[in-house]
Amino acid sequence: MTESAVIQTRALGKVYSPGSEAEVVALAGVDMRIERGEFVAIMGPSGSGKSTLMNMLGCLDTPSSGSYHCDGIDVAMLDAEQRAVLRRDKIGFVFQGFNLLPRMSALENVAMPMAYTSAPRGERLRRAHEALAAVGLSTREGHRPSELSGGQQQRVAIARALINRPPILLADEPTGALDSVTGEEILALFKRLRDEDHTVVLITHDPEVARHADRIFLMRDGELHEQAVGGPAHPAAEPVR
């Protein structure tokens, strides 16, 4: 594996309740390689395995088989505490729900992840200010979530994901709660972050959103396949009958 591969999985598998009548194969031999500075979309219908894959890439769950190297680190070699440190240092999460604390200002929300580090308060607030400036919200840092639009709240959430300067951003349906114009603005922001050498992995069910990515992966029944950007519609993007 070369140094440029930020995410690499080999034959990654996840089986829930193995050997029982309730057994579910959520991931089946997933091979994936993502380079530093790529913007990748993972598409698929509900139940296809894309959320399970995101949990694996985010070190929120452990695979039943196969391997995952995150920024060159073999995740299987880490214990729970070491995985938590890896998540903090290597991965920023952005979700459809903004998950902002309502009584905190935008600046305080962004600085919150650094509370789990040894950085002094002044350093945390300085980094939060820089992260908000990076997403175009330096003039809104004193506002609480209720005083911000949906798009601004998502920008705050992205700034929060950037606070520890992770190489990887995992975004799960980040435009799902936004109108189309605001969603386009958020996708443009992801492209700019890619150009600044972040690796962006976007989970979506929307083909129009996925087409903004450099590469598109399609999931169906736990299997992953790559599709050419701008190619024809793929059955994996259709609802499971």
Results as ranks from 00 to 15, higher is better:
A119V: 10
G151A: 06
D61W: 03
L137I: 11
A106P: 07
D71M: 11
G151S: 02
N55F: 05
S149Y: 11
G122K: 14
G66C: 04
R126D: 14
S118R: 15
S138E: 15
R194H: 09
R87D: 07
N99T: 08
A157I: 08
A119H: 13
L78A: 01
M112I: 06
L57E: 10
A177L: 05
T175K: 06
M112C: 12
D195M: 04
A157T: 01
A76Y: 01
H129A: 15
A157S: 03
R194T: 12
A115K: 12
P63A: 04
G176R: 01
T62E: 15
G183N: 02
A177G: 07
L101H: 00
K191R: 15
P145V: 11
N109I: 11
V135I: 04
I163F: 05
G92I: 09
R88D: 09
H69E: 13
Q154Y: 00
L101A: 06
C59L: 12
L170D: 00
E184V: 08
H129P: 04
R140C: 13
C70E: 04
L57G: 04
L148V: 10
G97R: 15
M112K: 11
P113W: 09
C70I: 12
A119M: 15
L132F: 02
R121C: 10
Q82L: 01
L132D: 09
R140M: 14
M56V: 11
F95A: 00
M114V: 01
A188N: 13
V181W: 09
E147L: 12
D74A: 03
R194D: 01
I163D: 07
A131V: 11
L148D: 02
V94C: 05
I73M: 03
P113V: 02
P166E: 09
L137S: 10
A111E: 02
I91P: 04
Q82A: 12
G142L: 07
V156H: 05
N164Y: 03
